[in-house]
Amino acid sequence: MQSLWKSLLGGAASSSEDDLIGRIPLFEDLTGREIDAVRRLLHRRDYVAGESIFVQGEPGLGMYIIVRGAVSIQSEPTGRELVELANGDFFGEIALLNEVIRTATARAKTDCTLLSLFQPDLLSLLDRNPRLGVKVLLSLARLVGLRLVEVSDEVEALTRECDELREAAGLSTDG
């Protein structure tokens, strides 16, 4: 009877997963209690190497965080790898913030364990526990911001390269 009450009243205990979640950059700032609340929103999924997680062009509703393993983000239809992600990285965050079609394909490069966070769950967290919801969102915004800085640096470098090439080409056609 005691176990019945325990299982009825208590939550599912899995502190080892809590540790994993606490080490993910996105959730670094959270307290133990908050991590526990976030854990209840996340879906844990296991993939074998080569399995696709989502495919470019599909409607997307959430993001994935890599707990273990490596994931390749590819551009269809060529299958060219855009980036390889590993432990602690996250991807698909655009769909989390805005329900859109996937802009790239994500494929497991090795066997991997992912945690997924879905838009309706994030929205319900914001509704039920705004303080924690804002903390998660802020952390997400920071990381997305960092990524944006990296991308704009890259764009700048590429633009410069393009200009140089154009100049070189222009010079060569003129000459």
Partner: peptide, 18 residues
């Protein structure tokens, strides 16, 4: 094989290898 044949096979589902 999966990588090389990516283009024409892309819409039809999972990797043939798996």
């Amino acid at each position: 094989g999966g990588r090389a044949r990516g283009p024409d096979r892309a819409p039809s589902g999972p990797e043939p290898a798996h």
